[in-house]
Amino acid sequence: MTEIKKATRDGFGDAILELAQNNKNIVALSANLGESTKLDKLKKNFPDQYIECGVAEQNMAGIAAGLALSGKIPFITSFAAFSPGRNWEQIRVSICYNRANVKIASTHAGLSVGPDGATHQSLEDLAITRVIPNLTVICPADYHEAKKAVIAAANHNGPVYIRLGREPMPMITDENSSFEIGKCDILKEGSDVTIIATGIMVNEALKASEKLAEQGIHSEVINCHTIKPLDEETIISSAKKTGKVITAEEHQIIGGLGGAVAELLSQKLPTPIKRVGVHDTFGESGTAKELLEKYSCDSTAIIKSVKEII
């Protein structure tokens, strides 16, 4: 059986279409990347709810804030490297300080952008969004979860950042899996080590967990789709059970999921932690698979860290 793969950005494209159809106050803003960010269907079917801003991410963020302060529910879209990369201060002030009800949906996050190289591979976006007050930060694990996250974000009153990927990836949840902002999902129970993963690394964590089980190591796998607010209760209770924690993200190990979990546990339940992700370096050109392997964002890297900590 061939595995069906879909990108999280496709989940966004399908969800926004559904949302726009049901609510005319839902609008999507594009910075000249509408097709890449999967707004093409919305543009075709609901042109009045599609706002082209040109290659101007800062202005796009501000316009969205103005629209939101006047009652619209705007989604701003671009590559994560440019939004929230280039327009961070506009997100901080015009959107978050204003508590403007803007959703920041950013595709092409992480190494899996591939051949475009380091300039377009956002590996810092979780760190720079998570630190802003009033902003909810979500990193869905697959297509279905992305779709649910986008719908949940639209129903949530306040700014939300949704991190999305370009590369089609295996689906690990389905239409009926639960999704609640701020609530982790325990995908697999185990007692030897906790693996907390986000985004496409959730699938890698599941793969790692299977291989570890073959070697008699029983890992608990947690899908931490919401980086902020962090589900402290689930993380602490799992860390208490296993006594060892691995975090895994397609992002710098500084400031993202690993940073968030380390901050939490160091304060509330000091626990040995290993962070899997990119180690303070830029990426480069290559295929998604090659890059994820080279920059230790795969199941092999997770297994290695588990062995080191156990």
Binding site: I51, Q58, N59, A61, G62, I63, A64, A65, G66, L67, A68, L69, S70, P74, Q90, S94, N98
Partner: peptide
């Protein structure tokens, strides 16, 4: 930009 968004 915020003013432009409000006018829009």
């Amino acid at each position: 930009s915020v003013a432009v968004g409000m006018a829009l």
